[in-house]
Design a protein around this nucleic acid. Structure first.
Lengths: 234, 234, 234, 234
DNA sequence: CATGAATGAGCATTCATTCAT
DNA sequence: AATGAATGAATGCTCATTCAT
């Protein structure tokens, strides 16, 4: 699983998109664009529909239990055609993860820019991660967390590089809060506790309140997390 | 995954063990005995060794990627012999989960009895769950959390009954703390945030501090969680 | 493999080229032209490059293990484009064989014309066949011998017709030598022993002497075969 | 194909059977037995029937065109059961070759022991190889020669060791004949010419004279080869 | 209880071929 | 002519499970 305790080379701050372009030629980022959002595969394209269905099925049944035939049927193509778009089944899993992490890193960077105070920043991060986990990219995020073991070691290394950029945003913010005395726990440990707490929401949180005993939206949930940490709720 | 949002029949407080005894004749609990510890399979027996190896392999490689032959080889028997102990591979997974949840519920009940204050109680629960996740039963607990999807719906229902007894211990304690104003967040939500935070430790916490940048033992980790919740650390 | 023991209709001396022209419109022979060399596909054309690469790859990896994509990549076109030049993959194999046999039959006819004695004639045939096997057309010849089984029965029949014309040159020469008492063995059997001996050189003879324990050129090899047959070496 | 021009480590004279026993535990030789014949897989066993059918099908259709399902059907088992006996399809090919080469090396050693003169010896070798190629082991021998390319490099290396022992019997005999002036050509070259000539008989020689224009048995064929070499025929 | 040969449905992947552009 | 996405049947191989011994 999306594992923290291995030695990871320091994230190379800006050039990672070049590396990516080499490894995944059909996936590109626009580093020069005014927004920092990564350019994802067109969701209308065959590849895009495949990735969406893959996220859905991998989340629902697990990577191992999802067959290439399941995937092909969900997209409406023949099983052999899958391999026109991806070399292996594992490459699909990897692409789901890479696209999600790139997309959500960009979203988080954009949200941080708008925050004005330290509590604004931590609230933005929590809110962003909750959105990533429970919103549109939720299935892909769940796959990122819970299907980590199904990646080859090479793919894991590739994605750990991307994850480090994402985690750096969290750690810097938590260290500022810690410096300001707003949180008591060690930032490193606190981030890991939050990772677990937030990613686990995918198993119980239903934004629309369907079937829940009390209705809770993403803002409420963000507030509950802030409360739990002893941080101010607006 | 070990999912919270499905309608679960109210836990039938005492009779679940009867059901269990029918389905798994060699596993029994003694709810009337003076100690509340469940009687687990003898770890020296063939069945016991099988369950231990199953927990290890399911944790390491995942349930789907672990073959019956892997299991047999780890125990030192032939693959066909596995089926003298369990009817199906899934029954092994189920047994790993059932034994773990029964064992850890008993441990938690025993720990609660000794606690004298509300903060003692919550600290005991946190400490107990961290021990379950990172101690001897850690592999089985990780399997319980991360291989949930590989259970049949019938097995899921069976185990949800056991889990409700376990969760009740948590919820009652959190509600007392909430009533006393010691925690601000909703007890129901707080428990779910804690479930995620604590179970996630399996991915990063190494008790011995091997390779970690700072050494942290289970007591330190418990203290960090208490700090995060704004609760007093002794 | 290029098999001798099936009943073959007597070679139809002149009309086979008509048949060929129908099936493979771009390949033609001019039996009435002053030179006896067949007109082969222009090696610069797309078709010519394809045939050359096919001979190379079929020899190197075998027909079955060579994919249409391998072939296309070797020529520098897309796999779909192959089928503008040949109707099926098997048609490529057939064309490689047909062109080689036509080319080498012509070469042998030309060499025989120049020979002045019976020993000259047999030496010319041996030398010619060794050149065919180990020279420029070597890869195609090896394909002709070792990929015979991959042809459809129809293609086999077509090529057997061409082969009979080639074999007739051998058999007539061996019968003259036998009549003159220069060889003792039955000409029919002797030709088959020679076919095997000569075609097998492809597996061990390296004209440049690279890595061989003794350097042996085609003339030396021809002489060794003559010696083996008890025939005079100039 | 069964290729001569690669550097081969010197054959380890007597202990090769030990090596073999390690690599192929179910195949054993009896180095202490009075006869030097290798002990082959029992032809009645599942493994034995599989090897026989494999030799037949690989010879008939080629290794690549023979599917595991073809093989299973020929033996009368399910395709999955093949892999109870052999780890891969290639291992079947390897086993066919190993058993054949061991068996025929032993036969040849036994025949050499009985020969009394140099011409007896060469006649014994020719006769033995013709029997190997056209007799009971004929299909397996043809596979050994014509499916060489389908072996992995590792398997090729393994079998080259066995082949060297076989070839040594030939080379020593030819060198004695050359020393005695009975053959004029270089022994090394002569052996290769003979290898081709003899192995090629598989494509045209039919012992029973079925459909042949003249009836030729193995003795006649041996005599023809001796005649071709200018050696005395009894 | 234990074995291990056998099963057979299922898997990811391959690949010659087609065809709309 | 050429492309390249798509096809779909086939391939080698896996593996939980069965069962005669």
């Amino acid at each position: 699983m999306y594992c923290y305790d291995r030695a990871v080379p320091q994230a190379r701050p800006a050039r990672f998109s070049v590396t990516l372009r080499i490894q995944e030629p059909t996936l590109s980022t626009r580093p020069n664009a005014s927004t920092h959002y990564s350019e994802l595969t067109d969701p209308q394209s065959a590849r895009g529909r495949l990735l969406r269905q893959a996220a859905h099925l991998f989340r629902e049944k697990g990577y191992e239990r999802t067959t290439v035939r399941d995937l092909a049927a969900a997209v409406g193509i023949q099983s052999g055609s899958i391999f026109h778009h991806f070399q292996t089944k594992e490459a699909i899993l990897r692409a789901v993860m890479v696209e999600t992490i790139l997309y959500n890193t960009s979203r988080m960077e954009a949200a941080l820019v708008k925050a004005e105070s330290d509590t604004d920043r931590i609230r933005a991060l929590i809110r962003c991660e909750l959105e990533a986990i429970n919103g549109e990219t939720g299935e892909a995020m769940a796959v990122l967390v819970y299907e980590w073991r199904s990646l080859t070691p090479e793919s894991q290394a590739e994605i750990l590089v991307l994850r480090d950029r994402y985690e750096k945003l969290w750690l810097e913010t938590l260290e500022r809060l810690s410096g300001a005395g707003l949180v008591k726990a060690d930032p490193f440990v606190l981030r890991r506790l939050l990772t677990g707490a937030l990613s686990w929401t995918v198993t119980w949180f239903k934004p629309e309140g369907k079937g829940q005993r009390r209705s809770l939206d993403l803002d409420d949930l963000t507030a509950q997390v802030m409360l739990t940490l002893g941080l101010p709720v607006p």
